[in-house]
Protein backbone atom coordinates (compact mmCIF):
# COMPACT_ATOMS: atom_id res chain seq x y z
CA UNK A 1 0.00 0.00 0.00
CA UNK A 2 2.77 2.42 0.79
CA UNK A 3 5.07 0.86 -1.75
CA UNK A 4 5.06 4.09 -3.69
CA UNK A 5 7.12 5.67 -0.96
CA UNK A 6 10.07 3.67 -2.15
CA UNK A 7 9.89 5.39 -5.51
CA UNK A 8 10.06 8.87 -4.06
CA UNK A 9 13.41 10.45 -3.63
CA UNK A 10 12.96 12.52 -0.49
CA UNK A 11 16.58 13.53 -0.53
CA UNK A 12 16.36 15.52 -3.74
CA UNK A 13 12.70 16.48 -3.65
CA UNK A 14 12.79 19.34 -1.22
CA UNK A 15 9.12 19.97 -1.69
CA UNK A 16 8.06 16.48 -0.78
CA UNK A 17 10.22 16.81 2.28
CA UNK A 18 8.58 20.10 3.23
CA UNK A 19 5.11 18.63 2.76
CA UNK A 20 5.98 15.75 5.03
CA UNK A 21 7.55 18.07 7.57
CA UNK A 22 4.51 20.31 7.62
CA UNK A 23 2.56 17.29 8.69
CA UNK A 24 4.62 16.97 11.84
CA UNK A 25 4.84 20.67 12.59
CA UNK A 26 1.05 20.85 12.78
CA UNK A 27 0.80 18.06 15.28
CA UNK A 28 3.79 18.98 17.35
CA UNK A 29 3.12 22.71 17.57
CA UNK A 30 -0.53 22.23 18.43
CA UNK A 31 0.13 19.51 20.94
CA UNK A 32 2.89 21.56 22.50
CA UNK A 33 0.94 24.77 22.90
CA UNK A 34 -2.27 23.03 23.92
CA UNK A 35 -0.28 20.98 26.42
CA UNK A 36 1.31 24.11 27.78
CA UNK A 37 -2.03 25.65 28.51
CA UNK A 38 -3.51 22.45 29.83
CA UNK A 39 -0.71 22.55 32.35
CA UNK A 40 -1.63 26.10 33.20
CA UNK A 41 -5.15 24.93 33.83
CA UNK A 42 -3.77 22.56 36.40
CA UNK A 43 -1.95 25.36 38.20
CA UNK A 44 -3.77 26.37 41.33
CA UNK A 45 -3.82 30.11 41.14
CA UNK A 46 -6.62 31.98 39.53
CA UNK A 47 -5.46 35.13 37.90
CA UNK A 48 -4.44 37.87 40.28
CA UNK A 49 -5.09 40.70 37.88
CA UNK A 50 -7.91 43.14 38.60
CA UNK A 51 -11.28 42.61 37.01
CA UNK A 52 -12.71 45.09 34.55
CA UNK A 53 -15.62 47.05 35.89
CA UNK A 54 -18.01 45.77 33.21
CA UNK A 55 -19.88 42.57 33.49
CA UNK A 56 -22.10 41.01 30.86
CA UNK A 57 -24.73 38.53 31.85
CA UNK A 58 -22.47 37.45 34.66
CA UNK A 59 -19.29 37.28 32.57
CA UNK A 60 -16.38 39.37 33.74
CA UNK A 61 -13.01 40.17 32.21
CA UNK A 62 -9.58 40.33 33.76
CA UNK A 63 -7.29 43.19 32.90
CA UNK A 64 -4.45 40.79 32.27
CA UNK A 65 -1.77 41.72 29.79
CA UNK A 66 -1.36 39.97 26.53
CA UNK A 67 0.81 36.85 27.03
CA UNK A 68 4.36 37.82 26.21
CA UNK A 69 5.23 34.78 24.13
CA UNK A 70 2.25 35.33 21.91
CA UNK A 71 2.98 38.99 21.50
CA UNK A 72 6.64 38.53 20.67
CA UNK A 73 5.94 35.93 18.01
CA UNK A 74 3.21 38.09 16.54
CA UNK A 75 5.51 41.07 16.45
CA UNK A 76 8.29 39.11 14.80
CA UNK A 77 5.91 37.77 12.18
CA UNK A 78 4.64 41.23 11.36
CA UNK A 79 8.17 42.51 10.94
CA UNK A 80 9.01 39.51 8.81
CA UNK A 81 5.90 40.02 6.68
CA UNK A 82 6.77 43.68 6.21
CA UNK A 83 10.31 42.84 5.24
CA UNK A 84 9.26 40.04 2.94
CA UNK A 85 6.70 42.18 1.29
CA UNK A 86 8.80 45.28 0.81
CA UNK A 87 12.21 43.74 0.22
CA UNK A 88 12.36 39.96 0.24
CA UNK A 89 9.81 39.34 -2.44
CA UNK A 90 10.49 42.20 -4.87
CA UNK A 91 14.27 41.71 -4.76
CA UNK A 92 13.91 38.03 -5.41
CA UNK A 93 12.30 38.72 -8.82
CA UNK A 94 10.53 35.41 -8.62
CA UNK A 95 8.19 34.18 -11.33
CA UNK A 96 6.42 30.86 -11.30
CA UNK A 97 6.73 30.44 -15.04
CA UNK A 98 10.43 31.20 -14.77
CA UNK A 99 10.69 28.53 -12.16
CA UNK A 100 8.87 26.11 -14.44
CA UNK A 101 11.09 26.91 -17.39
CA UNK A 102 14.17 26.29 -15.31
CA UNK A 103 12.79 22.99 -14.11
CA UNK A 104 12.04 21.84 -17.62
CA UNK A 105 15.29 23.06 -19.08
CA UNK A 106 17.29 21.33 -16.40
CA UNK A 107 15.41 18.13 -16.95
CA UNK A 108 15.72 18.24 -20.72
CA UNK A 109 19.42 18.79 -20.85
CA UNK A 110 20.04 16.02 -18.36
CA UNK A 111 17.64 13.75 -20.20
CA UNK A 112 19.19 14.41 -23.58
CA UNK A 113 22.72 13.87 -22.38
CA UNK A 114 21.76 10.59 -20.86
CA UNK A 115 19.27 9.05 -23.23
CA UNK A 116 19.64 10.46 -26.73
CA UNK A 117 21.50 7.28 -27.71
CA UNK A 118 19.89 4.92 -25.30
CA UNK A 119 20.19 1.20 -26.01
CA UNK A 120 17.34 -1.19 -26.52
CA UNK A 121 17.10 -2.39 -22.93
CA UNK A 122 17.02 1.15 -21.57
CA UNK A 123 14.36 2.19 -24.04
CA UNK A 124 12.25 -0.79 -23.19
CA UNK A 125 12.45 -0.10 -19.49
CA UNK A 126 11.66 3.56 -20.05
CA UNK A 127 8.76 2.61 -22.27
CA UNK A 128 7.09 0.46 -19.69
CA UNK A 129 6.07 3.18 -17.26
CA UNK A 130 5.20 5.48 -20.13
CA UNK A 131 2.86 2.84 -21.43
CA UNK A 132 1.25 2.40 -18.04
CA UNK A 133 0.83 6.12 -17.48
CA UNK A 134 -0.23 7.21 -20.97
CA UNK A 135 -1.56 4.26 -22.95
CA UNK A 136 -3.01 1.74 -20.53
CA UNK A 137 -6.20 3.78 -20.06
CA UNK A 138 -7.21 2.70 -23.53
CA UNK A 139 -5.15 -0.34 -24.37
CA UNK A 140 -5.24 -1.92 -20.93
CA UNK A 141 -2.31 -2.78 -18.73
CA UNK A 142 -1.38 -5.75 -20.88
CA UNK A 143 -2.13 -4.04 -24.18
CA UNK A 144 -5.01 -6.36 -24.96
CA UNK A 145 -7.26 -3.47 -25.97
CA UNK A 146 -9.81 -4.03 -23.21
CA UNK A 147 -12.46 -5.96 -25.12
CA UNK A 148 -12.08 -3.98 -28.26
CA UNK A 149 -12.03 -0.49 -26.76
CA UNK A 150 -8.66 0.09 -28.43
CA UNK A 151 -6.31 -1.92 -30.61
CA UNK A 152 -5.16 -5.26 -29.25
CA UNK A 153 -1.45 -4.64 -29.44
CA UNK A 154 -0.55 -8.31 -29.30
CA UNK A 155 -2.10 -8.62 -32.74
CA UNK A 156 -0.38 -5.59 -34.16
CA UNK A 157 2.98 -5.82 -35.86
CA UNK A 158 2.96 -9.41 -37.02
CA UNK A 159 1.23 -11.65 -39.53
CA UNK A 160 -1.98 -11.63 -37.57
CA UNK A 161 -2.09 -7.85 -37.62
CA UNK A 162 -1.64 -7.65 -41.36
CA UNK A 163 -4.36 -10.21 -41.90
CA UNK A 164 -6.67 -8.20 -39.71
CA UNK A 165 -5.81 -5.06 -41.65
CA UNK A 166 -6.54 -6.77 -44.94
CA UNK A 167 -9.81 -8.10 -43.62
CA UNK A 168 -11.03 -4.86 -42.08
CA UNK A 169 -9.17 -2.25 -44.06
CA UNK A 170 -7.43 0.62 -42.34
CA UNK A 171 -7.99 4.30 -41.87
CA UNK A 172 -7.07 7.25 -39.77
CA UNK A 173 -3.32 7.58 -40.11
CA UNK A 174 -3.99 10.38 -42.53
CA UNK A 175 -1.97 9.33 -45.57
CA UNK A 176 -2.68 10.95 -48.93
CA UNK A 177 -4.06 7.62 -50.15
CA UNK A 178 -6.76 7.96 -47.53
CA UNK A 179 -8.34 4.72 -46.47
CA UNK A 180 -7.35 1.20 -47.20
CA UNK A 181 -10.44 -0.71 -48.29
CA UNK A 182 -11.52 -3.85 -46.46
CA UNK A 183 -11.39 -7.34 -47.94
CA UNK A 184 -8.98 -6.81 -50.80
CA UNK A 185 -8.11 -10.51 -50.94
CA UNK A 186 -9.42 -13.71 -49.43
CA UNK A 187 -8.15 -15.09 -46.18
CA UNK A 188 -5.81 -17.69 -47.60
CA UNK A 189 -4.10 -15.16 -49.83
CA UNK A 190 -3.96 -12.67 -46.99
CA UNK A 191 -2.06 -15.17 -44.94
CA UNK A 192 0.51 -15.58 -47.66
CA UNK A 193 0.85 -11.85 -48.14
CA UNK A 194 1.27 -11.39 -44.43
CA UNK A 195 4.04 -13.95 -44.30
CA UNK A 196 5.76 -12.24 -47.21
CA UNK A 197 5.49 -8.75 -45.74
CA UNK A 198 6.84 -9.83 -42.39
CA UNK A 199 9.67 -11.83 -43.95
CA UNK A 200 10.85 -9.58 -46.74
CA UNK A 201 9.29 -6.15 -46.64
CA UNK A 202 9.39 -5.43 -42.98
CA UNK A 203 12.80 -4.91 -41.50
CA UNK A 204 11.60 -7.12 -38.69
CA UNK A 205 12.50 -9.95 -41.08
CA UNK A 206 10.55 -12.75 -39.56
CA UNK A 207 11.46 -15.97 -41.24
CA UNK A 208 8.72 -17.66 -43.22
CA UNK A 209 8.32 -20.67 -45.45
CA UNK A 210 10.12 -19.77 -48.69
CA UNK A 211 7.37 -21.08 -50.95
CA UNK A 212 4.69 -19.17 -49.09
CA UNK A 213 6.80 -16.05 -49.18
CA UNK A 214 7.15 -16.30 -52.91
CA UNK A 215 3.41 -16.74 -53.39
CA UNK A 216 2.79 -13.86 -51.04
CA UNK A 217 5.17 -11.69 -52.99
CA UNK A 218 3.20 -12.22 -56.18
CA UNK A 219 -0.08 -11.55 -54.46
CA UNK A 220 1.34 -8.42 -52.88
CA UNK A 221 2.39 -7.10 -56.25
CA UNK A 222 -1.10 -7.71 -57.54
CA UNK A 223 -3.17 -6.35 -54.67
CA UNK A 224 -1.08 -4.05 -52.57
CA UNK A 225 1.63 -2.50 -54.63
CA UNK A 226 -0.73 -0.03 -56.22
CA UNK A 227 -0.71 1.86 -52.99
CA UNK A 228 2.27 0.67 -50.99
CA UNK A 229 4.56 0.40 -53.99
CA UNK A 230 6.38 -2.62 -55.39
CA UNK A 231 8.87 -2.49 -52.58
CA UNK A 232 6.14 -1.84 -49.98
CA UNK A 233 7.80 1.42 -48.97
CA UNK A 234 4.65 3.41 -49.46
CA UNK A 235 5.54 5.33 -52.60
CA UNK A 236 7.18 8.26 -50.84
CA UNK A 237 4.62 8.74 -48.19
CA UNK A 238 1.46 8.09 -50.19
CA UNK A 239 0.66 5.11 -47.92
CA UNK A 240 2.45 3.66 -44.90
CA UNK A 241 5.97 2.40 -45.40
CA UNK A 242 5.55 -1.29 -44.66
CA UNK A 243 9.26 -1.80 -44.21
CA UNK A 244 8.74 -0.19 -40.84
CA UNK A 245 5.64 -2.25 -40.04
CA UNK A 246 6.23 -4.40 -37.01
CA UNK A 247 9.09 -2.20 -35.83
CA UNK A 248 9.13 0.56 -33.25
CA UNK A 249 9.65 3.06 -36.03
CA UNK A 250 6.11 2.62 -37.33
CA UNK A 251 4.63 3.39 -33.93
CA UNK A 252 7.00 6.18 -33.01
CA UNK A 253 6.93 8.00 -36.32
CA UNK A 254 3.45 7.29 -37.59
CA UNK A 255 0.92 6.21 -34.98
CA UNK A 256 2.01 8.39 -32.11
CA UNK A 257 2.52 11.39 -34.36
CA UNK A 258 -0.73 11.14 -36.30
CA UNK A 259 -2.98 9.27 -33.94
CA UNK A 260 -5.31 6.69 -35.38
CA UNK A 261 -8.93 7.03 -36.39
CA UNK A 262 -9.90 3.48 -36.64
CA UNK A 263 -12.71 1.01 -36.69
CA UNK A 264 -12.76 0.46 -33.00
CA UNK A 265 -12.40 4.04 -32.06
CA UNK A 266 -9.97 6.90 -32.15
CA UNK A 267 -6.57 7.44 -30.72
CA UNK A 268 -5.35 10.99 -30.33
CA UNK A 269 -2.03 12.26 -31.59
CA UNK A 270 0.61 12.44 -28.92
CA UNK A 271 2.47 15.02 -30.93
CA UNK A 272 -0.42 17.44 -30.61
CA UNK A 273 -0.95 16.88 -26.92
CA UNK A 274 2.77 17.26 -26.31
CA UNK A 275 2.80 14.86 -23.40
CA UNK A 276 5.85 12.92 -24.57
CA UNK A 277 9.12 13.74 -26.29
CA UNK A 278 10.57 11.90 -29.28
CA UNK A 279 12.82 9.69 -27.23
CA UNK A 280 9.83 8.69 -25.17
CA UNK A 281 7.97 7.91 -28.43
CA UNK A 282 10.71 5.53 -29.38
CA UNK A 283 10.84 4.10 -25.89
CA UNK A 284 7.16 3.26 -25.65
CA UNK A 285 7.22 1.95 -29.21
CA UNK A 286 10.14 -0.28 -28.37
CA UNK A 287 8.34 -1.54 -25.32
CA UNK A 288 5.20 -2.40 -27.28
CA UNK A 289 7.10 -3.92 -30.11
CA UNK A 290 9.19 -6.21 -28.00
CA UNK A 291 6.83 -6.96 -25.12
CA UNK A 292 3.42 -7.02 -26.73
CA UNK A 293 3.40 -7.47 -30.45
CA UNK A 294 6.52 -9.59 -30.64
CA UNK A 295 7.08 -11.18 -27.29
CA UNK A 296 10.21 -13.26 -27.42
CA UNK A 297 8.99 -16.78 -27.01
Amino acid sequence: MLGFLGKIDFGSDLVALLGGLGFFVVVVATAYVAGLYMKKMKEKSTSGAPLAEENWDGIGEYKNDVPTGWFVVYFILIVWAGWYWLAGYPLNAYSQIGEYNDEVRAHNSKFEAKYSNADHATLKAMGESIFLAQCAQCHGQTGDGMNGKAADLSKWGNEEGIMATIKNGAKGLGFPMGEMPAGLVDEATAKKIATYVMAEVSTAKKAGDAAVVAEGKAAFAASCASCHGEDGKGMNGMAPDLSTYGTPKFIAETVLVKGKKGHIGNMPSFEKSGLLNKTQFVAVATYINSEMSNPKK
Binding site: L2, L5, Y115, T122, A125, A133
Partner: peptide, 18 residues
Protein backbone atom coordinates in the same frame (compact mmCIF):
# COMPACT_ATOMS: atom_id res chain seq x y z
CA UNK B 1 0.14 10.14 -0.79
CA UNK B 2 -1.78 11.58 -3.72
CA UNK B 3 0.42 14.64 -3.89
CA UNK B 4 3.59 12.57 -3.90
CA UNK B 5 2.34 10.03 -6.41
CA UNK B 6 1.16 12.68 -8.86
CA UNK B 7 4.65 14.06 -9.09
CA UNK B 8 6.67 10.88 -8.67
CA UNK B 9 8.90 10.02 -11.62
CA UNK B 10 10.82 6.91 -12.47
CA UNK B 11 14.54 6.88 -13.05
CA UNK B 12 14.05 8.10 -16.61
CA UNK B 13 12.08 11.13 -15.52
CA UNK B 14 8.74 9.86 -16.84
CA UNK B 15 5.70 9.89 -14.61
CA UNK B 16 5.79 6.85 -12.40
CA UNK B 17 2.04 6.47 -11.92
CA UNK B 18 -1.01 6.74 -14.06
Amino acid sequence: TQGLMWRATDEYGSLAYS
